[in-house]
Amino acid sequence: MALTLEQVRHVATLARLSLTPEEEQRYATQLSAVLDAVAQLQSLDVSQVEPTSHATLASSLLREDVMRPSLPPEKALANAPASVGTCFSVPKILE
């Protein structure tokens, strides 16, 4: 199953990746190979099998609705490339 360059560019845009033309070619080939491998599984008849969304069969563990201390803001912001007051600062959001 060959992935078109158009599809590679679309996925790259959604993932905010900027690819060179060589990379677009390379990923088109590699991703197509991945899809081919998955496509083999399509040949199995799984109509009688429950879909599995998770490897474990466990149910969600729940916690009580109890407040716990948050981080001090200086710690919360410690990894931020830029901050103003106790806010994260990011390049201007358009719209």
Partner: peptide, 14 residues
């Protein structure tokens, strides 16, 4: 939206 933010900047509160 904060007056202390300079142009080209947006501030985020999580």
């Amino acid at each position: 939206h904060d007056a202390t933010a300079s142009a080209g900047q947006s501030l985020v509160d999580l």
